[in-house]
Design a protein around this nucleic acid. Structure first.
Lengths: 151, 151
DNA sequence: CGGTATCCGACGAGATACTG
DNA sequence: CAGTATCTCGTCGGATACCG
């Protein structure tokens, strides 16, 4: 388990991730202020991870990206890309030509994020069967309880 | 980059995470059906990761959990715990005593998930400064553009 | 103590229409 | 082509009240 000593305890510490402490200002003393969760809020949304994944293969234009991801609306792709650009995860390059051309590329930092994300996906892949079994068992238990109640 | 050959292509394949293909039924052919994203939907929500983290240290009762997490409502803690229980990440143990006592424990699978999550948090920790810089730069650029437009 | 039930506001996200 | 603007609806999550 990772434990990071708080460098300036007088600012107050916040149990961010169990034993993983981080230092923060007291006025940020909310769960939303947890920096460790920020990255999950970024890639935990509906589209970010998929965008990062496809850009991990190669640079793409807006329309190519939209075609590649399948299901994303133009609006949400724009919103997602702006967020990723703001965080320095993708670079947006506009070519002043007609018709317009905009390329999106993963930054080096974005590539390292993709590596970390793949770890998570790997975990998911190797535990999917176990999760499905747990769900089936839980749902069976729940259904049984419900049936007893309605008698 | 991870590429998993689709075992039964006739069921249709779906580009789940860039080059990471998974097999799925055609009637699940939505982005939400992506199994790789399921785990992110689980721990990407507002409270799951924090619950997993504090349970990673030791078994806790409901009220202890609520005290430990700070900011979570009773409702959301219940909802979160039910979800984690259903997925086999935590175990809920009810002791038939008065007053009631309910213990929550991380399963072995939950512990491995915590390890994977810590990888992500580690990434976040080591890139926070870079992300903040990127945001500041982006916001500065945006503010500048806005100022020019309103002239 | 450890929940459930209900109400309600805020936000995420799709559909659609319009633009440089 | 690559967006922006607006509307709308569904879901998330907090507050509150009640229960075994």
């Amino acid at each position: 388990m990772v434990r990071i000593p708080a460098p300036s305890p007088q600012e107050g510490t916040f149990f961010c991730l169990g034993s993983l402490e981080i230092t923060m200002n007291l006025n940020e003393h909310t769960a939303a202020g947890c920096r460790g969760r920020e990255i999950l809020e970024r890639i935990g949304d509906k589209w970010s991870l998929q965008v990062i994944a496809v850009l991990g293969e190669r640079t793409l234009r807006f329309t190519e990206l939209k075609r590649e991801i399948e299901g994303v609306s133009q609006r949400m792709l724009t919103v997602t890309l702006r967020g990723l650009e703001r965080d320095g995860i993708v670079v947006r390059t506009v070519y002043p030509v007609v018709p317009p051309r905009v390329d999106y590329t993963l930054t080096p930092m974005g590539a390292t994020l993709l590596d970390a994300a793949i770890t998570m996906v790997g975990w998911a892949e190797s535990h999917l069967a176990e999760i499905d079994a747990a769900r089936a068992a839980y749902d069976a238990r729940t259904a049984e309880t419900e049936a007893l109640k309605s008698q």
